[in-house]
Structure formats: structure tokens, C-alpha cells
Design a binder for these strands. Structure first.
Length: 214
DNA sequence: TGTTGGATCAACT
DNA sequence: GTTGATCCAACAC
């Protein structure tokens, strides 16, 4: 575990003494299903000018390769999905249904297009800021869905291709034990329903609503 | 150049 | 359970 963690300026132990380590590029270059499961219980952090927003990741989905019909790389290399063809450790953002952005982390080695979609978070730092961005909704409804996460955290296409080892957006291991994980089919996809590549922390308030029903 | 449908969400009935 | 909002990438012409 320790070898995949890299301390850097932004993940230095803080005054409170809480242990925080930014995940390194090597973390994301592993097989996508492994990365997806290991992301649960980690913390997404986004830095805006003078403001830090963070949340615990509790729901993700894996999309792996051109042979996965639900993966955006199923159509081959395009302007939209090209970042997935590079090495892991970068942000893949796409715009959907005319109004929402979705946040993904590129995984695997260069040449294998794959990513993990971040579907659900429990807000931690910057909750008031998230409420403002999300039209003052209750905490439990702030980031329990991929479109809501991007609204709450202010993530848009300007985040496309950003390094997850940089200073704008990253993931921290705060030393918590890995949570119990449930898996299921992915949500909202027409193709690839046979692959149980959605992973989530059962009973978390940050799991998307659609997901709770299944 | 035009058409179509989507890894969503909220507000309906 | 159904539908509207509303953009853009993909694909057919």
C-alpha cells in the first residue's frame, strides 16, 4: 500500500495531525477494476482559488477498453475520448444530456482506453460552498450522483486532461480502513449490462438515488 | 449540413 | 413511472 502513495506539498500532514497522502500516478495505472474498488473510502479534493472542496468517494463505475460497449472508447479514438488512450492518472470529463458534466479518472497503461466514473460522494470540506453551487440543497443530496458531483465541486470541461497528481484536483488516502463494498450492474447504460462493474459502499448517504433502488 | 440520442436530474402525475 | 431541459459527439447523408 505504502509504495503507491506519494507525499507532496498539498498532501503534507496538516496542523491537526490528520494523515493525508495524495495518490500517485502509479495508483491509476493499475487494472481499472482494482483502481475502482480502491477508490472507495478515498477523498476527492478540488482546489478553487482560496477554497478547498472535498468528499469521500462512495460510488464508482469502471469502463474498460474498446470491447466494453458501454465505454466511450467503444467507438474508437475520437476528440472526445482521446485522454482515455493515454496513461492513467488524468481527468476525463464529458458533457451529457445537455446540462451535466461527469468526472472520470483515466486508468491503465497508455494504449488501453479505460476510466473510472465517480458517481457518489459524501461531502466533507467546503459544504457551504457546495450548497451554494447546488442551489442550497441538503447535504445528503449534494453529491450523490455524477452530475451533482460536478455541480457541487465546480467541475467542467476546463478540468479535461488535468493530471490527478497536480494541484487543482487529486485524491487523498486519509488512512481509513477500506470499507465493505457491494457491486452491481452499471447505472443508465443501454449496453454492457452484463458487466457488474459498479462498486459502492452500502448504506452511504452519498450513493446515487437511482442506485439505491437496485 | 442535418439528425439523433445519451455513463442525468428534478419535477411532475 | 414519465417527461422536459438542452448540448454536443457521432454518424448518415
Amino acid at each position: 500500500m505504502a509504495e503507491i502513495l506519494t507525499l507532496s506539498e498539498t498532501s503534507r500532514p496538516r496542523p491537526e495531525g490528520q494523515w493525508k497522502a495524495k495518490l500517485s500516478k502509479a495508483f491509476y495505472e493499475k487494472p481499472t477494476l482494482v483502481v475502482a474498488k480502491e477508490l472507495l473510502g478515498k477523498y476527492l479534493v478540488v482546489r478553487h482559488p482560496n477554497r478547498i472542496l472535498s468528499g469521500k468517494i462512495v460510488e464508482v463505475e469502471a469502463y474498460v477498453g474498446e470491447e466494453d460497449p458501454a465505454c466511450h472508447a467503444a467507438v474508437g479514438l475520437t476528440d472526445r475520448n482521446h485522454i482515455m488512450y493515454g496513461p492513467g492518472g488524468f481527468a476525463y470529463i464529458y458533457f451529457i444530456y445537455g446540462m451535466y458534466h461527469c468526472l472520470n479518472f483515466v486508468t491503465e497503461q497508455a494504449g488501453l482506453p479505460a476510466a473510472v466514473l465517480i458517481r457518489g460522494l459524501e461531502p466533507v470540506e467546503g459544504v457551504e460552498e457546495m450548497k451554494r453551487r447546488r442551489d442550497h440543497r441538503s447535504v445528503s443530496g449534494l453529491a450523490n450522483g455524477p452530475g451533482k458531483i460536478c455541480q457541487a465541486f465546480g467541475i467542467d470541461k476546463t478540468f479535461y486532461g488535468l493530471e490527478l497528481t497536480g494541484t487543482r484536483i487529486w485524491v487523498e488516502d486519509r488512512g481509513e480502513k477500506r470499507p465493505a463494498i457491494t457491486q452491481s450492474a452499471r447505472i443508465g447504460v443501454a449496453a454492457g449490462k452484463d458487466k457488474p462493474w459498479r462498486f459502492y459502499v452500502p448504506k452511504s448517504s452519498g450513493v446515487s438515488k437511482d442506485g439505491k433502488k437496485r
